[in-house]
Design a protein around this nucleic acid. Structure first.
Lengths: 249, 249
DNA sequence: CGGAACTTTGAGTCACTTCAATCGGTGTGG
DNA sequence: CCACACCGATTGAAGTGACTCAAAGTTCCG
């Protein structure tokens, strides 16, 4: 697995690595102008309705995409990990329809849309960016399945499994645990559940010896059992794409 | 508004029309080899896990994308209308992670991935395809919000409003109604609700004089009240992009 | 040490599900 | 033309999952 890095260019290369970038492609990434900005926790990167001419690369920390209903209920529709491009969707119209907010102190790389568009001239990079968007969409769909058709405890286990898998893929897992310094309220907004119910679902997972979540760190005590209980199956994350030769199935 | 057509090329041009395609771009679309296949209702176009080297354009009829949980519950994650490209996501990896099935008798245009990839050489078309994917992703996210944070009646009204808006945009609305020949069971799979509950939610909307759904045709009796009740706000559909000058509302 | 934020638990209520029965339309074979 | 079967819509009733409200316990941090 990868070592962790906070170098934006390296993160981008990993994100977009379709395994056969040319040197020129890599140079184009390296030449990209990325301004890294440190942010505190709970800071808005973009808000719904904003007009924007730049997108961001999450370099360090956690963030989320969310929308709010007319009745003031928040639904988080995606968690973002270091290396993610949370608002690639805004590249098209420049109008933000999903807000992005940090969940922890973070470092965010700012890339101008006009610079990003340059990359599309390179077929390999265009394909990689396309793939990134496809994965985002696939995650959103699985998220919908989770919200619509799995009940509390199972839904919770599913989301934790997804996070474990994605954390693993960026080398953020140490042993059987990773940092997850978010509140149960935030987690509830992602699961479409009340804080109280989240608490009870986590308790159930704890009692079954699947997880332990203390001090902002999540311990996966039985990965297979958790995935099983959460009805989690990782193919939608498209990690098979990342390293084709190894060949998943 | 558009007149209705069953010509695949015209449908594609509308879908991808970013308002300033060049003649060459249009020619490229027109030259695309599209094999139109008639299908019955409830026929699978692609199934989860399939390996595929083609994508489809829905020419006529309705279709949906869906996934199934380990416990056998189905969640529909998108409805597809004529002119949509339901499995554009498969273009990247060729592995299907969301099944696509017809809901009514339909005509489906088959386009080989290798032909589709040619279009990416044309910046305007590449951008248009990107935009199509972005809209799909935005719909999936709003779908997640609907499932996670709106309760039955409101959620139902929201989905009906979305369908009305999208039907309108393809010219499929006549007066205040459009064809919607699907069962309440199917609708429940989209809303993440049981058939019984769907029935009661629809009853509530009917009682409030918002809709009437008879003979496979949905009548929107009070569009504004329905959108209001369903907390529907159409910006996520990105129609602003489609026809900037004319302006729908 | 004190306060704020977060977690945990209990109790009552509401939304939604499941099970089961009925109703209505439609198509088919006699 | 009628009897029957089938499918989907509708309704009732009982059970369960999840929410809200409320209070107590815990951790974190200045």
């Amino acid at each position: 697995m990868f070592t962790r890095t906070h170098d934006p260019v390296q993160l981008l290369q990993r994100k977009l690595d379709v395994s056969d970038l040319s040197y020129n492609d890599r140079d184009a990434l390296a030449a990209l102008s990325i301004r890294v900005v440190p942010m505190g926790a709970d800071q808005d990167i973009v808000l719904q309705g904003d007009q924007t001419s730049q997108s961001c690369l999450l370099v360090q920390g956690l963030a989320c995409s969310w929308k709010i209903t007319g009745k003031g209920k928040r639904q988080i529709v995606a968690f973002h990990l270091p290396g993610d491009l949370p608002d690639l969707l805004n590249l098209h119209s420049g109008v933000v329809d999903t807000a992005v907010t940090t969940l922890t102190p973070a470092k965010v790389g700012i890339i101008l849309h006009k610079d990003l568009r340059q990359l599309f001239a390179r077929p390999r990079l265009a394909e990689a960016l396309w793939g990134s968007l496809v994965t985002d969409a696939a995650i959103a769909r699985e998220w919908a399945v989770n919200l619509g058709r799995r009940e509390g405890p199972c839904r919770t286990a599913h989301l934790l499994s997804e996070l474990m898998e994605r954390m693993h893929s960026i080398g953020a897992v140490e042993g059987d645990s990773f940092e997850l310094p978010i509140t149960q309220e935030v987690f509830g907004d992602a699961l479409g559940m009340s804080t109280v119910h989240v608490n009870r679902c986590l308790k159930a997972l704890r009692r079954q010896g699947l997880i332990s979540w203390v001090g902002g760190r999540l311990f996966i005590l039985d990965l297979e059992a958790l995935a099983d209980f959460g009805d989690f199956e990782d193919s939608y994350l498209h990690f098979g794409r990342r390293s084709p030769p190894a060949g998943v199935h």
